[in-house]
Amino acid sequence: MCGYSLHDICKILSLDFVGDGNIKLKCLLPIDRAYEKSITFVSEKKHIKKIFNTKAGVIIINPKWLIKKIDKNFIYSDDPYLTFARVQQLFNPQPEANGIIHPSCTIGENCKIDKKTQIGAGTVIAKDIKIGKNSIIGSNTSIGERVSIGKNCLFYDNVAIYHNCVIGDNVIIHAGTVIGADGFGYARDKKNNQWVKIPQVGRVVINNNVEIGSNTTIDRGALDDTIIGAGVILDNQIQIGHNVVIGEQTAIAGCTGIAGSTIIGKNCAIGGAVEIVGHINITDNVILYAGCRVTGSIKKAGIYNSGTLHQPHNIWARNAIKFKTFWSHK
């Protein structure tokens, strides 16, 4: 972790400040734990009173919230939370690849691995792989045949990338995630009372600037590809079925399940534990609250919810009966 002066931070981020531009800062901390060498922030006007008691060396704040002059160092921002994120990136940059390939790695034939790529212990790389400049592949990771990985990627330990998958630039994949496993595709043979597996021959294509959390699974397409658009962020423990398409800049929280062949638009926000059935379309700019169950296409942008809040079971049971019959009366 490196330090910056207040002046340097604001110059890098093109922000205005008031106070001592030479103050040296080491980190960011919550407002109640901050000290003179740290930065804190106020994300909402309702918390403005906390600035009077904090020991922070610098406070990120929207200047419109200050009703009187206060003798403190401030970074002015119309969006303090966004500025907090940018400053945090300065203090905690993504690690740079060191070009070292651990001797315990196994690398197949005809691989094109940039000389600045870093690969951890025990990783297995199959044949015909391409890995771009400054990428870091963690330990005990498995990369299948004919996979293409862009530049500046960061894969943590124990990631599995199946064959033929395509991963763009600046992609982060956290530990335990599986990309390109077979989709859940079977045909029923009623005569012989058995399931017949459908070979999944599509790929997973992950575009630039995507981040995928731990233990998330993205299945390969059955015939067409499963596609994750540029700038998408995926939380931990998400299941994405075969042939799903997720539009650019969509965010999905943990434990959500998306069944196969569903298309999700751009700039959507999907809360935790959302259930989305297969073969539907969700348009751009849709917000789905946590726990929402989506059983059909959504054609109009907006905020959607379903289900009921937690309540004692006996009360829930009575309300469920009322809810079921509510629209039956005309």
Rank of each mutant, 00 (worst) to 15 (best):
S77V: 06
I75Y: 01
P93Y: 03
A97E: 05
P80A: 00
L90F: 02
I75P: 04
L82S: 14
P80I: 04
Q94P: 10
P95F: 00
L90H: 05
A97Q: 02
E96K: 12
Q88P: 05
Q94V: 15
T83Q: 01
I101D: 06
F91K: 09
Q89D: 14
V87F: 09
N92R: 06
V87L: 10
I75V: 06
Q89P: 05
N98E: 08
D78H: 12
D79M: 03
G99Q: 01
N98T: 15
D71T: 13
I100P: 02
V87P: 02
N73F: 02
G99D: 03
P93A: 01
I100M: 08
K72H: 03
I100A: 04
L82H: 13
P93K: 07
N73M: 03
D79E: 10
A97R: 05
I75S: 05
V87N: 04
T83M: 05
R86W: 10
D78G: 14
F91N: 07
N92G: 01
L82E: 15
K72E: 05
G99N: 00
P95C: 00
F74E: 12
P80E: 01
I100Y: 13
F84H: 06
H102C: 11
F84S: 00
H102P: 10
L90M: 09
N92A: 00
Q89A: 15
S77Q: 13
I100Q: 10
F91P: 06
D78N: 14
N73V: 09
A85I: 15
S77H: 11
I101H: 03
I100F: 14
D78Y: 11
Q88A: 15
Y76C: 08
N98W: 07
N92H: 11
L90P: 03
D79V: 00
F91D: 08
D79H: 05
D71R: 05
Q88F: 15
Q89G: 09
D78M: 13
D71F: 02
A85K: 13
E96C: 12
F84Y: 14
L82Q: 14
F74L: 13
Y76L: 12
R86A: 06
R86Y: 11
F74P: 09
E96W: 10
F74R: 10
N98A: 04
I101M: 08
F84L: 09
D71G: 05
Y76V: 02
